[in-house]
Design a protein around this nucleic acid. Sequence first.
DNA 1: CTAACTACCTGAACGC
DNA 2: TGCGTTCAGGTAGTTA
Length: 267
Amino acid sequence: MPELPEVESVRRQLDPELSARRIVDAWADPIPSMPREFHRVEMLAGRQISHVGRRGKFLIAPLDEGLELIMHLGMTGQLTFGNQSDPYVRARLVLDDGRALSFRDVRRFGRMAVVEAGRYESIPTLARLGPEPLSDEFDPGDFAGALAKTTAPIKPFLLTQRPVAGVGNIYADEVLWIARINPRSRRIGRCRAFVLHAAIRKVLAGAVEREGTTFRDFVTVTGESGRNASHLVAYGRVGTPCPRCATPLKKIVLGGRGTTYCPRCQR
DNA sequence: CTAACTACCTGAACGC
DNA sequence: TGCGTTCAGGTAGTTA
């Protein structure tokens, strides 16, 4: 479940390895039921990578010829260097230094696509992506305004990536616990929106420092686990006492997703 | 336009 | 032991 901190950890390791490298060969093994899994990856052969950037959970690598490589890790996607035989490697890029970057993805929710730079119509979530939470673009007033405009429950709304980029199921539970907001709440006032804004910044920045959360599948490019899991307060801790009020944390399904929160201090 | 729902995928965990 | 069911969740697509 790579979210912004996990993807940023991958980006930081990938960028120095891929910057200015040329791709000499590209291979992908899409399945007919998921035709967009590796869209136009064959176009990568011969292209040079400028650098590896990121928007939300999307890795964006500008190429020559006005193209961009977009990568999304989905649920179980991993990017590692190596040529080892592995049934879950779905795509592989051979670089001009002889190394191979492998895209390994057990559940096949990950994606790679080559697009004209900045043309994201074929990737709707990226086309409508909210501001980067750790940049100045993430403005408290704008965020409060966005929350005031929707009638959807706050947690599913955060997961749309529209009010802010990069928050997934784990960090949504964490930030709502810190801000003391019930995940089902449909009305977030200006004051609470500011508190939530600050919580998003704090939680994501801390998780980036610790190279992300490894709950099941996430590993960095070098195969290491993130160190943030022991810092989680809400996610995955159903039944344990709330650190604030000792009430056992409760788990519900909201928007089809498991949601853990404190029924007492998140009203 | 938004909100709400389901499909996609597959190993792990669970129940009998 | 073995088989069937449920769960995990980011995004795309459809429906109301």
